[in-house]
Design a protein around this nucleic acid. Structure first.
Length: 375
DNA sequence: TCTGGGGTCCTAGGACCC
DNA sequence: TCTGGGGTCCTAGGACCC
């Protein structure tokens, strides 16, 4: 079997371009809540080293110089476009995992290298024709290698080399020639912290990592790192997950656009988030056994303050009134005067299905009845 | 003063992903 | 002046149990 990773290029930017074709040849930036951070940017900025997550104010000047179109994010639009992309993909293959809003894995049978490459190109052309969203395709023996292949195809395309045309099948037999050029930080599962750690050990490229001893890697990076290394060697450790379990936690949070110090303002926000959480719970037919609330000050200033509290519910619930009451109780316990708060959130965990809770309520009744009968 | 061995469960914290 | 939001998984250490 082979894994195919289809990844939309600069997804939010591409969505905006679909609805406004004049933006095709113009630099575009999409910003987060409160227009604080960059969440998507066109290729011009990738080349300039403007990364996702960068604070807008720091790069604003540089960006506006280029006659850039700047957008606040419009998640309804992006969700809608995402659905269309995923639908197009399901046309090619039923064995499909929607990994994120702009990425999906497909699992397909082994074919010859030429056929695989052709398959990838067909996917790319079709999705672009049907949705207007440009994508890159990576194909390989494991998810981690498919991710790498996709990344390499993207880099190649951006450099204007163009020989891959946004599609790469990474054959296990000559993976080294690609992996020796792929920065370790680009490997799926290796983030900022591990990149530093690994570089300190002289590991700069995916190939260096892949050739290290597994036990050594596990010691440094837990079992997760071990699996990543195995996957780079073609051993499948992460299979397709196309039967998603219901979510294990549901979170709603938002940062404030201005200074907030008053518990009244915080309470209002916490209640709002509890409402959102309740709504999401009811939508997926879950109830929460635990509700937590957290507050956080500006992490870039001194006197950084973070605190959180989790409260167990006597009976699991998805009722907004109940959730709000408990969340506000929690807030009172962690509120500290004189702090300038930047963000609050409410989170539900220990989720179970609505049906189960009803069942257990009946069971309680039965127990009680039994107890009564016995006496 | 000496003070077992093994198991489970829970939580906080740290890493990662998009 | 201004730094997103929503998730997952793993581990260590403490509490508790026999």
């Amino acid at each position: 079997m082979m894994f195919v990773l289809v990844d939309c290029n600069n997804f939010y930017v591409s969505c905006e371009r679909v609805f406004n074709p004049k933006l095709k040849n113009r630099p575009v930036i999409v910003l987060s809540n409160n227009d604080g951070c960059i969440v998507s940017r066109s290729d011009e900025f990738k080349k300039l080293g403007v990364s996702v997550g960068a604070p807008f104010f720091k790069v604003k000047e540089q960006i506006l110089k280029l006659n850039t179109a700047v957008f606040s994010s419009n998640y309804t639009l992006y969700r809608n476009m995402s659905d269309r992309v995923m639908q197009s993909l399901s046309f090619f293959c039923d064995d499909l995992e929607i990994y994120s809003i702009d990425e999906a894995f497909l699992k397909i049978p082994d074919l010859s290298p030429e056929e695989l490459t052709q398959f990838g190109q067909e996917i790319k052309e079709t999705v672009e024709k049907w949705t207007g969203i440009p994508v890159s395709v990576g194909i390989a023996k494991t998810k981690t290698l498919a991710k790498a292949a996709n990344e390499i195809a993207k880099i190649n395309f951006r450099k204007g080399a163009g020989d891959l045309k946004g599609v790469l099948y990474l054959d296990l037999n000559d993976s080294d020639k690609y992996l020796e050029k792929l920065e370790i930080s680009e490997v799926w599962g290796v983030g900022r912290k591990y990149t530093k750690k690994l570089q300190a050990e002289g590991i700069y490229f995916a190939k260096d990592f892949k050739d290290k001893s597994l036990d050594w890697i596990e010691k440094k990076m837990t079992i997760v790192g071990r699996k990543t290394a195995q996957e780079l060697n073609g051993i499948v450790c992460f299979d397709l997950e196309n039967n998603p379990e219901p979510k294990k936690g549901i979170l709603s949070s938002r940062s404030f656009g201005k200074k907030v110090t008053d518990i009244k303002d915080l309470s209002q926000a916490v209640a709002y988030h509890a409402g959102i959480v309740g709504e999401k719970l009811r939508k997926q037919k879950s109830v929460a056994g635990r509700i937590s609330v957290f507050v956080i000050s500006n992490r870039f200033l001194d006197n950084f303050y973070y605190n959180s509290q989790a409260i167990n519910l006597p009976i699991s619930s998805n009722d907004t009134v109940e959730l709000t009451k408990k969340a506000l109780e929690g807030l009172e316990n962690i509120f500290k005067k004189g702090i300038s708060y930047k963000k609050v959130g409410t989170m539900a965990t220990e989720l179970t299905s609505e049906d189960e809770i009803q069942l257990s309520l009946y069971e309680d009744c039965d127990d009680r009845r039994e107890a009564v009968n016995k006496t």
